[in-house]
Design a protein around this nucleic acid. Structure first.
Lengths: 127, 127
DNA sequence: GTCAAATGATTTCAATTGTAATCATTCAAG
DNA sequence: CTTGAATGATTACAATTGAAATCATTTGAC
């Protein structure tokens, strides 16, 4: 497993597209990010390239272009980035983090219910 | 208000000490970070300097040294960093973030209770 | 009073990041 | 076939970051 790849803020945008779609061309990423950013297509191609060099994306050739796909799972990256954030900002205390976001977030009835359920589970299950 | 100061990972370590203690000397920061890092004291002095240049710390002279103090609140910084993280990693969906951390965190009975209470509040209060 | 130690200021230097531009190649439309 | 557009590779370049080293000044211990 590719341990601990460092994905930058801009690169995350690209990876999210890759995770959402699974297999993509540069053109697709450029189109997908069109509404979200003002990046030149060259910028996005650079990011794709860097992500390959980092081992975050794989590719197969397809004529003159590449078909890119994630080489690392979203889950693994979310976990890592989450841990880093938790320690940097909340001193590693997950309860503080949860309280922070629980207090300031708009949540639907259903989302609240799901969270309650998870907490109940946790209470029962121990850990 | 000093809008949107960018605090780097290493700088966060220093700021946390500043927020914990309120008013500190370089020596105190160096001592406080001694156990947490392997940084040379020069490195920590550099960080203090950068944080002043960024407007994240204030200082008053005290003989040949400075007394440093936070120029920005921890809360403001946590909020900003939190927003950034939320959008980068969870596409701006706070429920996903909360589920992620709720599931994978070890929480005490009391912490679970507090979170339940906050969620109940939220359910009643709307928003 | 002298001098080593501490302090802040300035400088260093490589890696990463944001944001492209240039270059060489290939492919698709005419 | 020719040629303009698209593509990936390489290069560019400033800002930020991590991690100090050097330098000038102050000062506290003798």
């Amino acid at each position: 497993m590719p341990q601990s790849i460092q994905i930058s803020e801009s690169e995350w945008e690209v990876m999210q597209v890759a995770w959402d779609r699974g297999r993509i061309t540069a053109a697709e990423v450029i189109e997908a990010l069109g509404p979200r950013t003002t990046w030149n297509h060259r910028t996005i191609r650079t990011l794709l390239n860097r992500l390959i060099n980092k081992g975050a994306l794989n590719y197969v050739e397809d004529g003159n272009r590449y078909l890119y796909s994630p080489a690392v799972t979203r889950n693994a990256c979310v976990r890592e980035e989450g841990e880093s954030f938790l320690h940097r900002v909340f001193g590693g205390d997950p309860a503080s983090l949860l309280v922070h976001f629980a207090k300031r977030s708009k949540l639907t009835e259903a989302e609240i219910a799901e969270l309650q359920r998870i907490l109940d589970e946790k209470r029962k299950g121990g850990v």
